[in-house]
């Protein structure tokens, strides 16, 4: 299973931030958009088309799932929210491990250069 997940990495930056945004709790579309902007310190500002393109693919791949919230949206219908599935969480964890390994290796090398 771990080797299967490794073949899905690395994630694109936008996909990584969307998954990261959903890690603590389910969110609706606009909350994801704002959260990604905050997480990336304003560097990644998703348009609606890009955000929903990513959400569509993540739903198809089974990395996230859609929920209907108790709170209605502006049209009076149940607001749709998205949350990570177990597979999505495993993939996010694997990507974080991969990034951590890279950072550790780079820090060790740079420490050697500076010393």
């Amino acid at each position: 299973m771990i080797s299967d997940i490794q073949t899905l990495l690395p994630l694109t930056e936008a996909t990584f931030f969307v998954l990261l945004s959903l890690a603590p709790a389910p969110r609706h579309g606009y909350a994801i958009m704002k959260d990604v902007q905050g997480l990336s310190a304003g560097r990644i500002v998703l348009s609606t088309g890009t955000l929903y393109g990513i959400l569509k693919r993540l739903l198809e791949q089974g990395w996230i799932e859609r929920l209907e919230s108790d709170q209605p949206d502006e049209t009076g219908r149940p607001r749709k929210e998205y949350q990570l599935t177990a597979l999505g969480r495993q993939i996010l964890t694997a990507e974080l491990d991969r990034l951590q390994t890279l950072v550790t290796a780079a820090q060790q090398r740079m420490a050697g250069v500076e010393a």
């Binding site: 579309g29 606009y30 958009m33 609606t48 088309g49 955000l51 929903y52 959400l55 569509k56 949206d73 502006e74 049209t75 219908r77 749709k80």
Partner: peptide, 21 residues
């Protein structure tokens, strides 16, 4: 302009999110 399947699945949400933005 989007494909019908995409529009039917996400059209309402896209409009709500755009209006909020």
């Amino acid at each position: 302009l989007y494909p019908p399947s995409f529009r039917h699945e996400f059209g309402d949400e896209l409009q709500i999110v755009f209006a909020a933005a």
